[in-house]
Design a binder for these strands. Structure first.
Lengths: 223, 223
DNA sequence: CCAAAAGTGTTGGCTCTACACCCATGA
DNA sequence: TCATGGGTGTAGAGCCAACACTTTTGG
């Protein structure tokens, strides 16, 4: 058939997701160990080929479900990697997604597609297949930038959180300590948080919980 | 791996370029009228299918050359559009590029691929094929945002320009008048311009020319 | 009672905005 | 000489960064 005879001359399209969370003062990323030969022995971002008739977002969500990740993440398109040599086996163009989850947990089972999935500190990544190290770096850069001018932080925190948790996120990402009073005043002045019922307890004075007023992405000058 | 064996079931990949310039206090975009049946009778952003072995950037540059555009533009990836219904004829995933040129001029000849190419004010666009109206809007939004925190303006201006031209760009994009003295002081304080030889003449006092110190993209807080 | 984190105000410096007049040229 | 845009300084307001002590709980 004609379509098939020249279709090998066209690049294929995949989606890959850079899955990030923030814990222990650092970004964590979720990686999988594919059974496919091309990436054997290395770790990779969850991903796979796009099917005809499917949107890119749907493909990304489908692949994330198949990767053993627990909860529905926040998703946004990151960048499309099209270097023909990024996969030595074939020309595969990959639409990378950024996926943010509130806490680095993983669902129970490995799948048919992967040997296993696991979280890694981004400062200590294993060997990554393809150009996935590049992808992860770009994903982190995107989040760092967006923390400064959007409410994207709400996708990296549990639904309610205390002020020190929010501050730890910003302080960790910026790599410098923030003045607690100035930070609180600034965030409060923007009116993007509202107090939530309950307190966070510990060996110390209980902390008021808060949640984001709106959880959909909006631009607000934070830093 | 069903998708892999039935290769005719895979989406195709194209690149499209949102070509923007700034003139007469407004963005202008370069559009073409394709000979291809799918877009017959409408205008479109220049673009076409990606070949195996070619990078996305190369594909975009190749398509721009084929579109009758005069000079080498600044290029950056914009967004990848993958909605399966964006092209009723087939599932074509399009990697959109943003292309900026200093002045809206077009090369002489129409090509085999297009009937013609022409510049339009973005406030008065003709009917656009596919989802290209969306693309153009997103391209403009990107430039507007980046004008505020990068030196991207250097790709929308001639190599040397006088202060009022820079100011007209910002003022036009922001949709409000800027205080000339404050604007000049602010830009000068950033040290991203240097005086260029020569002056801009007119029915008035001659204006000192300037050029950007560095023309590669760098982030600087401008607004 | 001790440790550990939560919560809270003020001030000085700096930055930003608002604002008006003279200058150099071409016609 | 007139019209047109080019070029320049200052002062008041508002914002931001720096700074330390008291509170509440668990152990």
């Amino acid at each position: 058939m004609g379509a098939q005879s020249n279709s090998h001359l066209r690049p294929k399209v995949a989606v890959d997701a850079v899955v990030l969370s923030f814990a222990q003062r650092e970004f964590q990323t979720y990686l999988v160990r594919p059974r496919a030969a091309a990436a054997r022995g290395k770790w990779a971002c969850p991903g796979g080929l796009v099917a005809v008739g499917e949107t890119l977002d749907d493909a990304a969500r489908r692949e994330l479900r198949a990767s053993g990740l627990a909860n529905e993440p926040y998703l946004e398109q990151l960048f499309t990697f099209g270097n023909p040599s990024r996969d030595p086996a074939a020309h595969v163009i990959s639409v990378a997604y950024l996926a943010l989850v509130a806490a680095p947990v993983r669902s129970s089972s490995p799948t048919k597609k992967y040997f296993e999935g696991s979280w890694f500190r981004v400062s200590a990544l294993p060997a990554l297949a393809y150009d996935h190290a590049l992808m992860v770096r770009r994903g982190i850069a995107r989040v760092q930038a967006k923390l400064g001018y959007t409410n994207i932080a709400c996708n990296l925190l549990p639904e309610s959180f205390c002020f020190s948790e929010l501050e730890a996120l910003y302080s960790g990402v910026l790599g410098r300590v923030l003045d607690r009073r100035n930070f609180r005043r600034r965030i409060m002045a923007m009116g993007i948080l509202r107090p939530a019922p309950g307190v966070r307890r510990g060996n110390h004075r209980p902390a008021q919980l808060y949640r984001f007023l709106k959880r959909d992405l909006q631009t607000v000058q934070i830093l």
